[in-house]
């Protein structure tokens, strides 16, 4: 994408035109609450800051904002920060995701089997 000549990035959307404010709301699913908790705990423990969270969210670009849900983007950012901090490797992550997916076809099956 061609950079905005003013230096404004996609996430700096204050003042843009847009459609009506959506009225929908939802209760958070367990996996979403867990993502939230892991991000907050990472901050409290000094593993990474809210700035680290936002840097990755903003670098994901506008397409991610439009196509992924809020906590999908958060878990992607959490993961990127963990990788950057060297908490685990890309190989460890890949192997674990495969193992999780092999446990079952629903979130409940996949998360409980690992406990």
């Amino acid at each position: 994408m061609i950079p905005d000549p003013t230096g404004k990035r996609w996430h700096d959307m204050g003042g843009d035109l847009a459609g009506p404010v959506p009225g929908d709301d939802h209760d958070f699913a367990l996996w979403e609450k867990r993502v939230d908790a892991l991000v907050i705990l990472s901050g409290l423990k000094g593993v990474f800051t809210v700035d680290g969270l936002r840097r990755v969210l903003e670098d994901m670009g506008e397409d991610a904002f439009e196509t992924m849900t809020y906590y999908e983007r958060w878990v992607a950012s959490l993961n990127q920060n963990m990788l950057e901090q060297g908490v685990y490797t890309v190989a460890e992550l890949g192997a674990r995701i495969e193992a999780v997916q092999a446990r079952g076809t629903t979130y409940g099956e996949a998360t409980d089997a690992g406990a």
């Binding site: 867990r34 878990v75 993961n79 076809t105 996949a110 690992g114």
Partner: peptide
Amino acid sequence: LSYWQAMEIAVREL
């Protein structure tokens, strides 16, 4: 199970 849900489980366990 979505890819991102699987990632949450994997990240949390790691």
